[in-house]
Design a protein around this nucleic acid. Structure first.
Lengths: 197, 197, 197, 197
DNA sequence: GATGAATGAGATTTCATTCAT
DNA sequence: AATGAATGAAATCTCATTCAT
């Protein structure tokens, strides 16, 4: 049963692999179909267009990551602790599904196709921004940094670490991933912390 | 005179504008030619292919930025001061040539075929990494962060700020740019500084 | 049914007509598609490129002729009789499919990129060579001619007669074709025959 | 002095080499210029077009060969002896200028560009045809072969031997060339000879 | 005469999308 | 639901020819 829904997921998972490997523009619809082991036209049966496939990946998969981030915001902890949690969530997503993360990282900020329609992305930034703002109110984060700017820096640093892993320019074994977590937290979150001085 | 080299630059400058406005994939060679005010085939006279145009932009324009970064390394100042200089150089490049920065930011991650050949980028990372390592030796930067990882975080944060400007998600008036400089320096370089505690 | 294979043949047959009429270089892929009554891209669906279409013509159509030649070799007859059979087969191919012969004659020498891959042609020469060599062993053919050289002369004479027909420089009505058969046999095969003197 | 005429010959000689190596269609005008060591545009200064270059090669170089053939016709000897002379002239031309012969052989019969304008080629055939016809009148050549057909067969056999040399499929050392002469004469001219029977 | 940059028509090829089965 | 042949617009690239210097 749910064969229909299974097929959909099967194609979506294949799309993640193919888009991650070749980039969205370079990937052909036929590559996705072949990777999924289904007929050419079936991609169009389930999704209306190539764009729609990418959008579905973003909406459905990115959502998983974003809802995790949203959960971090709900925690009763202090802002720095919430930021730490966000860093951990994002970096660990790499371990769970590197292809997905690779795709999100590569295409998300840059896809003219998508941007307008997907405010989920904006929500991630908004979420980070809110956490920072709250921290500034609480007095746990330095107040001389624009909250939105802080969110961008944090996202950028995370993205680049992921990119380093994606492109094999940074070691990505378990130890390195664990160390990266500590280092990003120490540097970024540390850099945002308000100090006694 | 040097008409030949001028023509080359003329086409390259047009390519930067067109690629920045439309994205590399979406831009047609004819658009570049028209923007440069030359005939279709002349682009192929100077560059062998559309790809080669992009590569030339990367190699030649990106090089200008990177050599500026390299100069920062030559300064006799302390590592944190050198890092501050790098941040200023990169962020100010936006003011000087937004189209170029927009292009570099948008396409560099997307072009797998370019990346390999362009070690200039690798050199920028190496430069940053060396500065950080020296700072750790001097005792001016915290030693519990891998130098290469630190370079990635710094680069990523800078890139994302630029991206924010490119996509209009961050304010980019003169004041905002000046403030961004202070904030990135405060957060990132600050986060890497060794503390008395 | 077998619609797929039919379509392939349909395009191939159209290609033979178009290439024969205009020459390979002058013919456009669109001409082939139009002649076949199919869309532009379908040619690329079945064959990967314009070159591949020509190669397919050579391999598949030329093969039919060559296998006929190979059959001549299997006959139990004497070498001169086998050579006569070969002459008849080749000259009659003109009557059966002038366009094909026109194409083969015009393009085969011109296509250096094709030649290497097509050993079918080499096999035709080898076949002729073997027949001649056997005739020399049998004592039915003169022994003071290199067998391979004899094969080349025979092939060349046949090709030129076909070329004469193709280009309208030799009469090609039924009588002329019948006469040509006798004359080529009389001259070439006769010239190779061992004589009592 | 005659610098002008020298330049012309220099370009023509380069064209022979380039056309022979790549084929006329595949060769680019720039290749000819580079091979000649002159500027691109100079080819157009001396010859009006790419076609005109080929035509000049045919007219001027082919003429040398044809006039030699014409001389054979003037000899007072019998037809078979004249044919032998023609065979020798053609095969020895290979030794003198293989590239030229390669070009003539490859393109002459097949160039749609040229054919109409160049009746020199027709004259070669006409010359051969006349020799054969005279031989039939004299009673030295068999009368049951159409004279024009005989000319075609002879030309074709010669062409294929040359092609064999061109493509390296037949040995072309001095001994082989000498043997080829005897063999072609023995077979072709022998095949056309009238016999006592 | 000599140069080679400049032109642009025209060719091949790609690939998202449609649609008959 | 599933298939994959069929379509054709649109892109890249080639190269003979022109022309200003």
């Amino acid at each position: 049963m749910t064969t229909t829904e299974d097929r959909r997921r099967q194609i979506l998972a294949a799309a993640v692999r193919v888009f991650a490997a070749q980039g969205y523009e370079a990937a052909r619809v036929g590559d996705v179909a072949k990777e999924a082991g289904v007929a050419y036209g079936l991609v169009y049966h389930y999704f209306g267009s190539k764009d729609a496939v990418l959008e579905a990946v973003f909406r459905e998969q990115w959502g998983r990551l974003l809802s995790a981030v949203a959960l971090a915001e709900e925690t009763g902890e202090t802002a720095p602790e919430q930021l730490e949690l966000v860093v951990k969530i994002v970096l660990r997503a790499w371990r769970d599904d590197p292809n997905l993360v690779r795709l999100l990282v590569r295409e998300i900020t840059r896809s003219p196709h998508i941007q307008d329609e997907l405010d989920e992305i904006g929500q991630a930034f908004a979420s980070l921004e809110r956490i920072v703002a709250r921290g500034q109110d609480e007095g746990t984060l330095r107040a001389d940094v624009d909250a939105r700017m802080a969110a961008f820096m944090l996202y950028g640093a995370l993205e680049e670490v992921l990119t380093g892993w994606v492109l094999g320019q940074l070691p990505d074994d378990a130890d390195a991933v664990a160390a990266a977590e500590r280092e990003v937290i120490g540097t970024l979150v540390g850099g945002l912390r308000r100090r006694a001085d």
